[in-house]
């Protein structure tokens, strides 16, 4: 029999109400409060422990609370972790999200919670945690527990999982292709959608536009004449033998190449391996993508302090945002270590 552990707040953990919201985390062997119902509904696992923590304790001492609870779990065997249901309780929702995320990261087990759609925990943690669409209040306890138990059983059984809307959890920002049971071809779907849109009827897009990403704005360089500037590109400029075997499309690899002794990139020594465009221009003059020649002149003129010793390269075509973000983070480690002040990233 597989094992499950449930996280509850002070109220559902039967410690007390608002006056006990500062209650420090404890772990209890066996079933407390809703754990009994969860244990009853779960077919493929037994609930072995209940963790209880006050909502305010988690809110005000998050690091300590998480550290304590992860400590509790270190010597426990468990295959799945539940938290809540949190209904519309905002602090409880936050606590469920925080602990589920931490448990998933540390132990790699599936984590499941349930919240009402208006619980702020949904927006904060739906990408990290399976959060099921739950009721407004504890009146829906049995129903919400049944839902998460059923899904937990599916996960533990390695069953095929349906899309979020069919399973009942909030979408996690993950999209995969599926074949429609109806076999309705795209030609019919697109024409039907247009007819509805033209007639002012409601229609459902198959690609809801996600909210745009925002990156914090870096503070400006104060004295450019003392700054080290690095060149990065996604146009696939590499030494002609492509020593890091960076892929021509859907890249997962990147490379950095010493340019400290070069005035410009020479054709024949460097080329592009990017499969997404006509390479002729960049092969003839790699500086059209990686403008080392121009940056060197600015270095000589004293506009910048110096050009960083390496340039960094990968390929942008078909490369997913996730891979691009990872490679960017890896590159920035090197750039920070070399005290680079600014980067010119040329994309193609």
């Amino acid at each position: 029999m597989k094992k499950a552990i449930l996280y509850l707040n002070q109220f559902f953990g039967q410690i007390g109400g608002e006056d006990k919201a500062d209650f420090a985390p404890v772990i209890k062997e066996g079933l407390v409060g809703p754990a009994t119902e969860l244990d009853k509904k779960l077919n493929n696992a037994q609930v072995t422990h209940t963790i209880i923590c006050g909502d305010n304790f988690m809110g005000s001492n998050q690091d300590e609370a998480v550290e304590t609870i992860l400590g509790f779990l270190e010597d426990k065997e468990f295959d799945i972790f539940f938290a809540g249901p949190a209904f519309q309780a905002g602090r409880y929702g936050n606590a469920c999200g925080v602990i589920c995320k931490a448990v998933k990261e540390k132990f790699g087990v599936p984590v499941i919670s349930s919240m009402h759609i208006e619980n702020p925990g949904v927006e904060m943690f739906k990408k990290d945690v399976y959060i099921f669409k739950g009721g407004h209040s504890a009146a829906k306890m049995r129903k919400d527990i049944k839902t998460i138990a059923k899904f937990g059983d599916k996960l533990l059984n390695n069953e095929n999982l349906l899309p979020a809307e069919d399973e009942g959890y909030f979408p996690r920002g993950i999209r995969h292709q599926v074949w429609l049971d109806s076999n309705t071809p795209a030609s019919d779907r697109v024409v039907d959608m247009l007819i509805k849109k033209l007639n002012g009827e409601t229609f459902e897009t198959e690609l809801p536009i996600p909210k745009a990403d925002r990156v914090p704005i870096a503070s400006p360089i104060k004295d450019l004449s003392k700054a080290t500037i690095a060149l990065v590109n996604t146009g696939g400029i590499v030494p002609v033998d492509n020593p890091d075997r960076i892929q021509s499309a859907s890249a997962t690899r990147w490379g950095r190449y010493d340019i400290s002794s070069m005035e410009r990139l020479k054709s024949g020594e460097f080329k592009t391996i990017h499969a997404g465009f006509d390479p002729a221009a960049a092969d003839a003059d790699p500086n059209v993508i990686l403008p080392l020649d121009a940056l060197r002149v600015y270095e000589k003129e004293g506009k910048i302090g110096k050009v960083h010793e390496y340039f960094y390269s990968t390929v942008g075509t078909g490369t997913t945002q996730a891979e691009a973000a990872r490679m960017g983070k890896e590159m920035s480690e090197y750039l920070k270590e070399a005290n680079v002040d600014g980067v010119i990233l040329v994309s193609t």
């Binding site: 002729a280 221009a281 059209v288 993508i289 002149v297």
Partner: peptide, 28 residues
């Protein structure tokens, strides 16, 4: 996309002027 900083249909001088200018804008 294929030649961000120098159109091969233009002269080397024109390509250089464009590239030098735009890299300068990026530095600023």
């Amino acid at each position: 996309i294929p030649y961000p900083l120098g159109n091969p249909d233009t002269s080397k001088e024109q390509q250089w002027k464009l590239r030098y200018h735009r890299v300068g804008v990026a530095l600023d």
